[in-house]
Amino acid sequence: MSLSGLNSLYREVILDHSEHPHHKKNLKQATSKVTLKNPTCGDVINLELNLVDGKIADIGFTGEGCTISQSSASMMTDVVLGKTTEDGLEMAQIFSEMVMGQKRSAADLKKLGDAAILSSVMQFPARIKCATLCWWALRKSLGENVDD
């Protein structure tokens, strides 16, 4: 028996982000606060944004969840910080298509920074929602009409 198959999903960088999540905090000043839940597993994310002049000037998240959901949120906050609303929504779209197994260009994937490493989650269909929950929270925070 071997868990070598897990290496593709639980890469070092993912475990790092999960153990030491970035931007896991409440913001002193926030222009939006969004809570999303995954009712099938009980994962919760509270995402706070401070938008200044159409840019994400600060971002923080709290909540509970598995390794994948925590590291995904950590990597997302790294890469969207300082970006415009449009850029953030575009990244969310790229991420969503990537984990569903749709082809995106290398240039597009590069935009996701560390988060691109989660493309491996598509081999574990039961876990895709864990990776996407934070990105849905971002979409909602940036004004997209998202069902929660």
Partner: peptide
């Protein structure tokens, strides 16, 4: 130290 979802995915790899 491990969320049950991560554990369940790992156990599944071992059948």
């Amino acid at each position: 130290g491990l969320h049950p979802h991560d554990l369940a995915t790992a156990l599944d790899m071992d059948g």
